[in-house]
């Protein structure tokens, strides 16, 4: 079996977000970069588990970005995966990113394509669905459980107020979230091995951006908290009713 795991670089979850150059660029000062948590904790680790069960499995990692993303892809390789592909283009447009990955996926003839449920920077939750549409494959979103038998995957996915079980014949694109696997920490052997694993750099296919990020802004600051004493709950109820008008 061949699995393609999509990896994205994002700011750490604790990062304080600020912008520079007239609010057109993320201020990267002091930002720690990490593998997008959903890509790492759920899709990559689940792929590694599948390979542990069936050693004939091959795992390829793919990322779209410039050379700055390489430490992140090496970190992912330290967790597992046989080789990685970096497509040498930087874009915030999900259509461009998905088109590049779809091209890799088409050539590699993968049985399974895993993405995280979304990235924690642009939160578009769009890459998996777009890759599936570009390749005309089935797509299952928000998977929290995944098993495979022969050429059939059994996938549990989140629905509003519950979950649903789907059966799909491979190949399939799956977006992964909590429940798929447990977070792992790379060990020394993995980190050493990652240094020599192949990392192929490919030039992008021609593809026009369909959207452009113009600028950013921070949410307006709160007016300041109104403190209510513990014995004034009737007053809090009044404020919620008459001032905030939310109950």
């Amino acid at each position: 079996m061949k699995i393609l795991v999509c990896i994205s670089k994002t700011p750490d979850t604790t990062a304080k977000i600020a912008f520079t150059e007239g609010n057109t660029k993320l201020d990267e000062n002091g930002i720690q970069w990490i593998i997008n948590p959903y890509d790492e904790w759920y899709s990559l680790v689940r792929a590694i588990e599948l390979k542990e069960k069936d050693p004939a499995t091959t795992i390829h990692l793919v990322t779209v970005g410039n050379a700055e993303v390489e430490p992140i892809i090496r970190k992912a390789l330290a967790l597992g995966g046989d080789e990685a592909i970096r497509i040498n283009v930087q874009s915030n447009d999900s259509f461009v990113v998905a088109s590049q990955i779809a091209e890799v996926a088409k050539k590699g003839a993968y049985d399974l394509i895993f993405t995280g449920k979304e990235t924690i920077d642009y939160n578009s939750a769009s890459i998996g669905s777009m890759i599936a549409a570009l390749l005309d494959l089935p797509f299952v979103s928000l998977a929290n459980h995944f098993t495979i038998e022969g050429n059939t995957a059994t996938i549990k996915r989140e629905i509003e107020g519950g979950e649903e079980t789907n059966e799909v014949i491979l190949p399939v694109v799956v977006s992964c979230q909590k429940g798929m696997a447990e977070q792992r920490i790379p060990n020394m052997r993995g980190i050493m091995a990652a240094r020599t694993k192949p990392l192929h750099v490919q030039e992008p296919i021609a593809c026009n951006e369909s959207t452009q990020v113009l600028d950013f802004e921070l949410p307006p600051a709160k007016q300041g908290v109104k403190l209510v004493a513990t014995d004034q709950m009737d007053e809090l109820v009044r404020l919620l009713k008459e001032e905030a008008k939310v109950i």
């Binding site: 998905a98 939160n123 578009s124 769009s126 669905s129 777009m130 549409a133 979103s141 928000l142 369909s210």
Partner: peptide, 23 residues
């Protein structure tokens, strides 16, 4: 931008060759 919308909208955007913004 709910569970079904998140899954469907990007695929529809591809099929319509449309630019897509979510959220």
């Amino acid at each position: 931008h709910n569970i079904n919308g998140k899954a469907l909208a990007p695929a529809v955007a591809i099929k319509l060759k449309a630019g897509f913004v979510s959220g």
